[in-house]
Design a protein around this nucleic acid. Sequence first.
DNA 1: CATAAATAAGACTATTGTAATCGTATATAC
DNA 2: GTATATACGATTACAATAGTCTTATTTATG
Lengths: 147, 147
Amino acid sequence: MFKFSRKIEYGILALQYMAGRKQELVSAKEIAENLELSFDFLAKTLQTLMKRGLVASHQGIHGGYLLAKDADKISISEIIRSLEKNISIVECSPSIDEASCSRMKNCTIRGPLLKIEKKMLLYLEQTSIAEISQHDKKTKLEIKIRN
Amino acid sequence: MFKFSRKIEYGILALQYMAGRKQELVSAKEIAENLELSFDFLAKTLQTLMKRGLVASHQGIHGGYLLAKDADKISISEIIRSLEKNISIVECSPSIDEASCSRMKNCTIRGPLLKIEKKMLLYLEQTSIAEISQHDKKTKLEIKIRN
DNA sequence: CATAAATAAGACTATTGTAATCGTATATAC
DNA sequence: GTATATACGATTACAATAGTCTTATTTATG
C-alpha cells in the first residue's frame, strides 16, 4: 500500500517536463524518449490528464501537449485525483449508507483516519509541480522512482 | 492507491479494542466476534503484530493477546511498518544503486517525493492508538471502513 | 493424562487492481 | 494524400492483496 502508482509517477514526470517548456507543444514521443518512459503508458496517462483539464492537446502532425495552467497551480493532489479513482485512504465516503457496512453504526476508527487523511492530502495539495521543479534545481538530487 | 489495506484496518481495530481492555488477555475470537471481522484474517494479523512486538501472546486455553506497550506509545506508523513490507510512497530507497534504475542519474522527482513522504509519515508517527480512541470517545462518529 | 481451547504457521486459491500491449479511429500540417 | 500526431477501447499479463484451510503446538483444567 501507499505506493505512488506508475500513472502518478508518469503524470508528475511528464507535467514537470512540460513545465520546463512553457507554452510549447511537446509530443508524447519526445517526453517518453527523454525520460525513458513507455510511450503507450505515457500516452494514455496524458490523455487522462487532458480529459481532466490539466493539459491541453493538439492533434495532428506537430501536435502535442502543453500545460493547461501554470505549474504553480498544479498540485500533486490534483494530479492524483485526476489519475486515480479515489484518493482517500479509507474506502467509505461520508455519504455511504449503513447497508453497505455492518460496522457503520459503531465504527471507531474512521473518524480519526479521515483526520489523518485530511492532513496528508492538505500537504499534497500544497505541493505544486513548480515547487517540485524548484526543489530539484536547487538540490540536484540523483534518485529514482522504480526498479 | 493510497488505501489502507485490510491488514492495517484490522490491526488498528484490534489494537484499539485491546487498548480498551488494558492488561487483560483478549482472544482473537472475542475480537473477531465483537468487531465482526474475519477470524482467520484477524488471527494472522495478530500473529504478525506479535512477531513485531506490538502485542504479547499467551497460548493455550484462556490464552489471548494484550498490548505489549501503552496505547499512547503505539503509532499508526508503527502499525503500518509492522504489517506492510514497505511504508514508503516511492519504491527506491536511498541505498539503491544506479543499475536498478536507469533514471537514477537524473531523476527529478524523487527528492521532492521523499520530502512529501517524510511529512506524511511524520503525521502517522504522531498519531497513536490512544489518540484515536480518545478522538472516538469524544466525537462518537458513526462511520465505516469498508464495504 | 486426556481434552478442549487457544495461538502459530505455512500452503494454497481467489480476487482485484495495476501495468502493459495492441489495434483502430481521428485530426491536421504540409 | 500522406505522414505524424492524439484518442480510445479492448484485451492480456502480472502482482499484490485477500481469503481459506490444514496441521502443529501450547496450556489450563477436570
